[in-house]
Nucleic acid binder design. Structure first.
Lengths: 218, 218
DNA sequence: ATCCATTTGTGCGTATGTATC
DNA sequence: CGATACATACGCACAAATGGA
């Protein structure tokens, strides 16, 4: 193989793209060890030197992590999340929450406008799942994330979805802590989510805005 | 010689950071050719092999571009813009405009809340500059960009500022085209900007929201 | 059209440090 | 502790592309 090159990209660049795609596709999951340099060099039919350049690049981007004498591990699925994380680390938590609030509001309004029937089904399922986990609050976070993620999908905007994904995973701990510390009744919180769902069903984007603002006050 | 390394980062990684910073600081501008590998290797006191790893990495993230037998050129000032540009290219123009609108609105509201006296001075100057260029519409875009950028600075949120920078530079052509095609009177548009400035002065974030929405309708 | 200096691309060899068993 | 394997950095030599004389 390997001779379909337009030569515009270097060999290591091509191999790097392939390996990066495999990681993005989940062939090698986050935290897992990838094959040794020698094995990978054979797999891609390149010299070990070339493959070392590949690993060097993916390491510098933050996708891979090399542990000397041990092996190479996957640290992240793609560059966007890595880089957004770096950006988040540079600013205050308050700043990040400002961005998150803006995202939530924008996403809810767009979801109300653009949602399809399939989107509604997904959101409804997540809402049910959320309601069933009401009593044991500990596992509520995952259901909550699923609900908001389903809405983010429904806004049909890849940029907003990616930004929301990156900021959610970054704020994971903060969100779950905050949720456990709230004084609001679980039933009351559920009511707010139900209202948000209904306003998306009715394609009432103004109502969706108000609902999200209430949820953000939790 | 050069043994002040904490060894947590490899030599090539450290040099890569330094070179990346220089590019971000504008020492080597976009489109310019950087010194040869041999020269850079001497400058940073590393071998050419090590320096080649550096260039390889910066190339892989899209900051540099190598032309064999010619030299190495600067393609972008920093990673964030490179990544965001890639993301923008993956989605529709409508999606990008949705993100931009959300940014404008969020930024204006936050600017109204957080602006300092220094911020106001900067915004006012940009507004004056904008008003003086009213008659010759052709050079209005730059003044317009400066005005909005001054507001983005005033929101004191690095993430929002970076996002706004990346999306503005990406939409540069689109914005200027749209501005020339508008049917609205220059004086009327100026009035809208004046109102936005006043609402930021008065720290009236709700009023700022309304003003931006009107400006976005242009 | 040809040659030549410059510059990047590739491969090999070596020395030293470092993690793991 | 020593042995082994791998990481890191360096130096050299030659190939290939580019652009100008």
């Amino acid at each position: 193989m390997t001779t379909n090159q337009i030569k515009r990209y270097s060999l290591s660049q091509q191999v790097a793209d392939q390996l990066e795609s495999r990681i993005a596709d989940g062939v090698y999951a986050v935290g897992e060890k990838i094959p040794t340099e020698t094995e990978l060099a054979e797999m891609f039919d390149v010299s070990r030197n070339t493959l070392r350049e590949v690993i060097q690049c993916l390491t510098s981007v933050g996708i891979l992590e090399v542990r000397q004498g041990n092996g190479t591990y996957v640290r992240a699925t793609n560059r966007f999340h890595v880089y957004m994380k770096k950006e988040y680390e540079k600013v205050s938590l308050e700043n990040i929450l400002e961005v998150r609030n803006a995202l939530e509001i924008t996403i809810a309004q767009l979801a109300a406008k653009c949602r399809t029937e399939e989107d509604l089904t997904a959101i409804r399922q997540a809402l049910f799942q959320r309601q069933q986990n009401l009593s044991p609050i500990r596992e509520n976070t995952q259901a909550d994330v699923n609900f908001h993620m389903a809405i983010a999908q429904a806004c049909h905007n890849g940029i907003l979805l990616n930004l929301y994904l990156s900021i959610s995973s970054y704020l994971e701990d903060h969100i779950s802590k905050r949720q456990k510390a709230t004084t609001m009744e679980p039933l009351q919180i559920d009511q707010l989510h139900e209202e948000l769902y209904q306003s998306i069903v009715q394609q009432n984007d103004h109502q969706a805005l108000l609902c999200v603002q209430n949820i953000l006050k939790i």
